[in-house]
Amino acid sequence: MTLDSLDKQLLNIIQSHLPIEPEPYKKLAETLGTTEEDILARLKRLIEKGVIRRLGAIFDSRRVGYSGTLCAMKVPAERIEEVAAVINSLPGVTHNYLRDHPYNMWFTLLVESQAKLENTLEEIKRRTGIADMLHLPALRIFKIRVNFDLGEDENA
């Protein structure tokens, strides 16, 4: 979709923060010199077109109490679809990418405890029959740039 100048200004502002007050859209309208109805209509359209993926709270998974990790598996080319179906069916898998490396399937997993995390990895190995998996939990986070929509709410 094409974004006009006001759409872009609106996106710029709300990427960093939405007002946490009773009438946040009215506040945005005042800041941008337009009406609340116009802001609501623009947001509705940006959400429908998929430009905005989520409006509101972006959580820190660790502070919510969840455990996460990044995993990479070596999946034979002819099994990619089938193995992806198994992995993607798990609700804690938020991202799964095919990458150009012998470890070709990369997914993030977020679950409510460390024990559940280990059980889930075992389950994936059992159901796919693929044991060659790198388990790469974050040891230290130097940076997460918040205005990039790339797994920022799932710091696995």
Binding site: Q15, H17, V146
Partner: peptide
């Protein structure tokens, strides 16, 4: 408390 990392919009970059 940092439970919410950011209160805003996640945008498809």
């Amino acid at each position: 408390r940092g439970v919410i990392r950011r209160f805003g919009a996640a945008v498809r970059h």
